[in-house]
Write a protein that binds this DNA or RNA. Structure first.
Length: 874
RNA sequence: GGGUUCUUAGCUCAGCUGGUUCAGAGCACCUGCCUUACAAGCAGGGGGUCGGGGGUUCGAAUCCCUCAGGACCCA
């Protein structure tokens, strides 16, 4: 006996192992087949599966499984990236718990710990994906730090440097003066603090008694000022632009300049420009060609460039300088001021914006093809609204800062000589050779070369991902890259459209001369019911593995997909997953029903025959729809169409039509047709729900050794008999009306009802009689030309009567008819209004007008029927 | 501040390039059913001025403008 509810656990493990053993997911280049390739967006090696991954990977799996069933050489490449910042932060935290400081370790020792960590936790997320049913070719699992991918990154750096696209420049970083290191944006916590906004007077050079006032919360940095800036539209200061102001206490003259960056309303409308100690000032300084004066040491004390208060800590200096300014008469006033100040997550020290030397990639040239080929849809973004965002970013693209002050990652292959000369080469040996040959420094040894301590941005390795997983950088003409590249689809989140997607397209054109993927499907962000992004730190995300244990992988997959149109966020609700599980259960019970039948020798009755013909058409209709939806990447809608086909058409309609009486056998023709339908339905559903469909498919019929639904043919649409489908729609309306009548009259479904039909087309109903009897439990069916006795209802313009003595509620029926009449007359009026409008008849397309005429005729016929019925009621 | 985008039933969303009285689906809700595949179910049912205003058109949820409110990205 098969269980009443579907229990996923053992079934899922059983079939996943079976798939792996039979290597259905493994792929190798096969010239006889069309390749279908997806590369996974590599999750962080230290990460665990979250809801976003679930959605993302479900979609990838659906696409991959469908392609595989369609006979393509499907290849889904799995892997992880090394996530410099996140991993290093985790390792540092782990070391701290052990009482070890990163600064106490050598680079090599630290990297040992990183690798240890990676080996320990690195596989977890990929293991979790197996639970979801992901059909990746696991033998191809790649990691951005493994040797071949590492070399690819280094090669690309060297290549771009040699092309003149990579240069060194300055950039503001977050400096933690206590830890004496940079920290990433993610590691800076903004805290609201009360500060003193100090209004300081700067005398105008050569104009006795004249001054400008600036407002600042950082008076200790005035010695690093290089200009005073005002808004060009600000009338108050027009006359000062071009003159010079004197920094108080040190009397250095600085120019007064104009730039619309300055807000007229803020403070005094005069801004002190201090490029070394503020990001915005830095930009401003660059724009106006101003010098940069850095007056802070690594530990946050003032250096000799400050001229005064040298050696004092920045906060002590702040207090002292206010006093000095007061004594010198330069303070106008001091206000309390609330603002957000960055603090180090690690040490809680106030973060100091600090200039440092970084590596940059020039984006202008290299990004051109990537820009054009998205705009002309060679690479398609889905949904297309992201093209606008993409264009905006590409048009304003800025050079890419590719260096990070970290150890875990691809170490920048730049080597410095004692005098600061930079040599970029793949390794120290090549750098040395280069120095010897090109700089003619023959006495040089490797010991004279010092490698840049920084590593490359993680994205600088993942932008090569679609190429490097096939070794296409180091070995650009190998069989794999030639076969699998360009890949077909990329499924990812819109938040990384620029960080990752755009850069992959750039790298694709630069290194393969073509796009890395044809379609980019951008999923939404999974949010909780309150609209907050699901995250571990908020604790508002369910554990995906718990969910799978509770609802089954198939249930979770369908639940995730139910409400996730491309690019729109989805508000996660456990109800969705529940619905997915219920669907599994529905399918399971349909299977139980069919499995429980015994087969007789008898011939097929006409009703069952008609039912199978109808479902064949209905199935084909939905197949065509699903194929079309897949072409448009509307997977959620495709799932919905499948869901309705199975639940409404197959279970509620078809199975009820052909179901034999309790413990009666079924005829062989209907039975075979039903098994065939079930087989096709399972294949249709397999990409969405791989496990339950395999279990059922394996049990519907005898299967061969090593057979699997994974590699069975995806069903293709056949002929559709639309006339038959329309007839069945009418049938279903009649059945609904009769059931509704039973409901309102409190009649049991078991009571047989007599039915009279008044219609112009009796043969339509004659062919449906058998099904009508079965679905609505009617006994005798007679055709009448006049009004008959009993309760009546209308379907289209035919009238139906059910004669139940004493059950007629004349008033209620009249009310219903009047309501129907009012509606139909209103409808007719609107149609007539259109048709009597000459401009409509002239301007609208012929078939639209024809449709309106047909509507008019239908409505008129219906109104006549209703009126007759009303007359009968008296 | 610059850009993108959204607002349709109580909730989450469909509604593609204007054309059935077009206002839809799922969930939730209400009524009646433990009818031997399924109560994780069956059969029925109610519910919305398509954010406000204006315009284009024979015709607007759909196209344009504007206002209000939300979301995201960049600085």
């Amino acid at each position: 006996m098969i269980s009443k509810t579907y229990s996923p656990q053992e079934i899922e493990d059983k079939w996943y192992s079976y798939w792996i053993e039979n290597r259905y997911f493994n792929s190798k280049p096969n010239p006889d087949k069309e390749p279908y390739t997806i590369v996974i967006p590599p999750p962080n090696v230290t990460g665990v599966l979250h809801m976003g991954h679930m959605l993302n990977n479900t979609i990838q799996d659906i696409l991959t499984r469908k392609a595989r069933m369609e006979g393509k050489e499907a290849c889904w490449v799995a892997g992880t990236d090394h996530a410099s910042i996140a991993t290093e932060a985790k390792v540092v935290a782990m070391l701290r718990e052990k009482g070890i400081n990163k600064s106490d370790l050598t680079r090599e020792e630290f990297l040992e710990y990183c690798w240890e960590w990676t080996h320990k936790y690195g596989g977890i997320i990929l293991q979790q994906l197996r639970k979801l049913g992901a059909s990746c070719d696991w033998d191809r699992t790649r990691f951005t730090m493994e040797p071949s991918l590492y070399d690819a990154v280094i090669d690309v750096f060297v290549d771009l440097y040699n092309k003149g696209d990579i240069y060194r420049g300055h950039r503001m970083v977050n400096w933690d003066p206590q830890a004496r290191t940079t920290v990433s944006d993610e590691e800076v916590l903004m805290k609201e603090v009360m500060q003193k906004l100090v209004y300081i007077r700067y005398a105008i050079e050569g104009e006795e008694g004249q001054y400008v006032t600036i407002a600042t919360v950082r008076p200790e940095t005035i010695m690093a000022d290089v200009a005073i800036c005002v808004n060009p539209t600000d009338e108050r200061y027009q006359h000062l632009v071009g003159k010079k102001a004197l920094i108080p206490l040190i009397n250095r003259a600085i120019p007064i300049i104009a730039d619309e960056y300055v807000e007229v309303e803020f403070g005094t409308g005069c801004l002190k420009v201090t490029p070394a100690h503020d990001q915005n000032d830095y930009e401003l300084g660059k724009k106006h060609n101003l010098p940069t004066i850095d007056l802070l040491n690594e530990d946050g004390t003032l250096n000799e460039k400050a001229q005064i208060l040298v050696g004092e800590d920045r906060f002590i200096a702040r207090k002292k300088i206010i006093k000095l300014l007061e004594e010198a008469g330069n303070i106008e006033k001091v206000e309390e001021y609330k603002s957000n100040v960055g603090h180090s997550e690690r040490t809680n020290a106030v973060i100091e914006p600090r200039l440092s030397e970084q590596w940059f990639l020039k984006m202008k040239r290299i990004s051109q093809p990537a820009f054009e080929n998205v705009m002309n849809d060679t690479v398609q973004l889905l949904p297309p609204k992201f093209k606008n965002t993409y264009r905006h970013w590409m048009e304003n693209v800025r050079d890419w800062n590719i260096s990070r002050q970290l150890w875990w990652g691809h170490r920048i292959p730049a080597f410095y000589l004692k005098d600061g000369t930079v040599i970029v080469a793949r390794n120290k040996r090549e750098a040395l050779r280069k120095a010897q040959h090109e700089l003619l420094l023959f006495a040089l040894t490797e010991a004279d070369l010092e490698q840049d301590p920084d590593v490359l941005d993680t994205w600088f390795s993942s932008w090569l991902w679609p190429i490097s997983v096939f070794d296409g950088i180091n070995n650009p003409d190998n069989e794999e890259i030639n076969y699998y590249y360009p890949t077909n689809d990329l499924v990812t989140a819109p938040e990384i459209l620029f960080f990752w997607v755009a850069r992959m397209i750039i790298a694709g054109y630069e290194y393969r001369n073509t796009y890395p993927f044809k379609n980019v499907y951008l999923t939404g962000i999974v949010r909780d019911k309150q609209g907050r992004k699901m995250s571990k730190s908020l604790g508002n995300s369910p554990d995906p593995l718990d969910l799978i244990a509770q609802y089954g992988a198939d249930g979770v997959r369908t639940g995730m997909l139910f409400s996730s149109p491309a690019g729109n966020d989805l508000l996660y609700d456990e109800k969705l997953v529940e619905q997915g599980r219920n669907f599994c259960n529905k399918v399971w019970n349909a299977f139980r029903l069919v499995k429980g039948w015994t087969v007789s020798e008898e011939a097929q009755n006409p009703a069952s025959q008609l039912a199978t013909q109808w479902f064949e058409s209905k199935l084909n209709q939905t197949l065509a729809e699903v194929h079309d939806l897949f072409d448009k990447f509307r997977m959620s809608d495709a799932l919905n169409a499948v869901y309705k086909l199975i639940w409404d058409d197959f279970c509620s309609q078809y199975l009820e039509m052909i179901k034999p009486e309790y413990e009666q056998p079924i005829d062989p023709a209907t039975y075979e047709a039903t098994l065939d339908f079930f087989d096709r339905l399972m294949r249709l559903t397999h990409p969405f729900m791989p496990f339950i469909t395999e279990e059922i498919w394996q049990n519907i019929r005898e299967r061969g050794q090593n057979d699997s639904i994974c590699v069975a043919e995806y069903p293709q649409p056949g002929a559709i008999d639309t006339t038959l489908i329309n007839q069945f729609e009418i049938l279903s309306e009649v059945v609904s009306a009769i059931r509704n009548l039973r409901n309102t009259k409190g009649l049991s479904p078991k009571v047989e009802l007599p039915l009279a039909i008044r219609t112009e087309t009796p043969d339509l109903y004659q062919s449906l009689e058998g099904l009508l009897r079965k679905l609505a439990n009617v006994a005798a069916i007679e055709y009448v030309s006049e009004q008959a006795e009993g309760m009546s209802f209308l379907v289209r313009s035919d009238e139906f009567f059910i004669n139940l003595a004493g059950e007629i509620d004349v008033e209620a029926e009249r009310e219903n008819l009047l309501k129907e009449l009012e509606y139909t007359e209103g409808f007719l009026a609107s149609v007539q209004k259109k048709l009597s409008n000459e401009r409509f008849v002239q301007n609208a397309k012929g078939d639209v007008v024809e449709k309106e005429r047909q509507k008019q005729a239908d409505a008129e016929a219906k109104i006549a029927t209703i009126k007759e019925a009303l007359v009968r009621l008296g």
